[in-house]
């Protein structure tokens, strides 16, 4: 069975709210979860802003979809990789990010180095960028 599983990586490179990419990507990840593939989600470049703590889009009458990342482990998405380099470029650290607890209370939000991200990307069957 496992050999039929594909490794799918979703790469988020856009900030939330200003454009619809971030929200659309999340919809695709949620819808794709029914196929029970091996899924990881990566936050790269401005995509790291999507995981920023303390968002309050209600002031602009928009939905706070940063809450939805918290549901991803239940959808069997166990890794939300954050490109460390992109964080540094934006003056952010892990403390600026939301936490996404898995069932065992570990955090699905995982900082990753360029080297590790590069090899992880290379191992995928499918990479989709938003």
């Amino acid at each position: 069975m496992d050999s039929l599983k594909k490794r799918i990586m979703y790469v988020n490179r856009r900030a939330p709210y200003g454009t619809v990419y971030a929200l659309e990507a999340l919809d695709v990840v949620l819808a794709g979860a029914v196929f029970e593939q091996e899924v990881s989600v990566v936050f790269l470049d401005d995509g790291v802003y999507q995981l920023r703590r303390g968002q309050n889009p209600a002031v602009l009458n928009m939905k706070d979809f940063s809450k939805t990342f918290g549901a991803l482990p239940d959808f069997d998405v166990m890794y939300l990789y954050v490109d460390e380099e992109s964080l540094v470029q934006r003056g952010m650290t892990a403390r600026d990010l939301i936490e996404v607890p898995r069932e065992d209370d570990t955090d699905a939000v995982t900082l990753i180095s360029s080297t590790d991200l590069s090899s992880l990307m290379d191992q995928q069957d499918v990479v989709l960028q938003f």
């Binding site: 029914v34 809450k67 939805t68 918290g70």
Partner: peptide, 15 residues
């Protein structure tokens, strides 16, 4: 209120 989505059936059952 927690996740800002309506869960599909599989997720609802798990939850």
């Amino acid at each position: 209120a927690q996740y800002a989505i309506a869960p599909p059936i599989r997720i609802l059952i798990r939850h």
